Each structure stands twice: as structure tokens, then as C-alpha cells.
Simulated assay, not measured.
Amino acid sequence: MDFLNRRTVRRYQDKKVEKIKIHEILRTALVSPSGKNTKPYEFLVVEDEATLKKLSHSKQMGATLIDGSPLSIVVLGNENSTTWVEDCSIACTMIQLKAFDLGLGSCWVQIKERKTSAGTDSEEYIRNLLGIPGYLRVLAIISIGYSDEIKPSHSESDMDFSKVHYENY
């Protein structure tokens, strides 16, 4: 699999993601690396169009694409873990890479520390919408579907090797 071909997708075909592919994505997410193997992440799968539309209002900018996606996975973390943000971030990446491996596109929609257009905390908005318990934090939503965009692969010109250092800075 050439990860240079993986690009963020914000427009999706009007086609459901097969249950077997959703299951494979979740299998991958559930074994994502985590600090001390604590696995403080949980995942909430949303396919209902009305709920996806409501989720698209979960932050001021950058979430409208959720309304056009056939599937979104809300990535939750147990705040009792000192590494929940890092561990959930890894899980988000694993979800996106597995989706790509299965021929799907995806987009990471950051929720933590964001606000809705009405000024409501994005996490609180989602927690209330989906009935999420208070001890779980909402890090992000990963929208997933069959891409309705054609984007070029990343090239060498996209890579800033001045950000790479060897042995010392």
C-alpha cells in the first residue's frame, strides 16, 4: 500500500460502506497502540443520515462534510487515562489508514477544544446528541466513505525534509 496516495477526502459518493469494511476498520482501531496498552479509546459508529446532519453542526468550521458522508466514527477517550489524547490520536490515524487500505476515503474532524457556531463546546454538543457518558471525552470524528474526488498523490515537492534531523538538532 502506497501511503503517498492517501489524501483527505471531503466529498463522498452516495454509497453505503459495507458492514464487513466497517467491522475491519473497527478491528484495526480496537488494537491501536496505546500507553501501557490501556486502550482508553471507544468508538461510536454513526450511519443515520439525520444524526450525521446534526454532527455536521458540531463545530463552527470544518464539519459540514459529515453531512455528505455515509459513515462517521466518533473517537472517544477515557479522561482517566493520562495518555487518552495521544492514544485516541493514534486510533484516529489507524482508522484512516485502514479505510484507505479498504479503498475508502476519510477526513479527520477535530472536536477537542472546538466550539459550535453558537459558541457551545463541541464536545458537549456531541455528548448531548449521542448520549455519551461524562467520563468520556470526544477527540475527533472520522468521516468515511467512497471518495467522490480525484486528488493527485503526494510528491517529493510536498515533503519538507528540512524538518528532518539526524542525531541532534
Rank of each mutant, 00 (worst) to 15 (best):
I66R: 00
Y169I: 14
R137H: 07
T83S: 12
I22C: 07
S122N: 00
S89H: 03
S106H: 04
E18M: 08
N128Q: 07
Y125H: 09
N80E: 10
F3P: 10
L97S: 12
S147D: 09
G62T: 04
P133I: 00
R114G: 06
Y166N: 09
S72E: 02
M61G: 14
D14K: 11
E167N: 12
M1F: 13
L52I: 10
L76P: 06
N128W: 00
N80C: 08
K16A: 11
S81D: 11
I142K: 03
R114V: 02
I144H: 04
T38G: 10
A99Q: 02
M61E: 14
E167R: 11
L139Q: 03
K115N: 10
V109W: 02
D160Q: 07
F43N: 05
G103I: 09
M159L: 15
V17Q: 01
K19A: 15
P70A: 06
G119C: 05
D158K: 08
S32C: 08
N128M: 01
W108L: 15
Y41C: 12
V46F: 10
G62Q: 06
A63T: 07
T116M: 06
Y12L: 08
R7L: 11
S143C: 11
S32K: 05
V45Y: 08
L130E: 02
V164S: 02
T82H: 13
D67K: 14
G145D: 01
S143K: 05
S147V: 10
K53N: 08
P33I: 01
G35Y: 01
D148N: 15
I111D: 05
V9S: 07
Y146K: 06
L65W: 05
G62Y: 02
H154Y: 12
D87R: 03
K15T: 12
Y169G: 15
K54R: 15
P70M: 05
K16H: 03
E124R: 10
T120E: 15
G103Q: 10
V46G: 12
K151A: 12
T38I: 10
E49D: 11
S122V: 02
K163G: 13
V138I: 12
Y146T: 08
I73P: 06
Y125K: 04
E47P: 09
Y146V: 10
A140G: 09
T64S: 15
L71W: 05
T120F: 13
I90T: 12
L55T: 01
C88Q: 00
L4D: 08
Y125S: 05
N37P: 05
D158A: 09
T51L: 09
Y135Q: 15
G145L: 01
A140Y: 01
K15R: 14
S106M: 05
S155A: 13
L55P: 03
S32V: 08
E24M: 14
E124D: 13
E86T: 07
E24T: 14
T38R: 10
I22F: 06
I90S: 06
V31R: 13
R6Y: 08
V17T: 02
K15D: 11
L52P: 12
E42I: 04
G77F: 03
I126T: 03
G62V: 04
V74P: 09
E156G: 13
I22R: 03
K16Q: 07
L30I: 06
K54S: 15
C107N: 04
E86Y: 07
S32P: 08
K21E: 09
G105E: 01
I150A: 14
N78A: 07
A118E: 11
R11L: 13
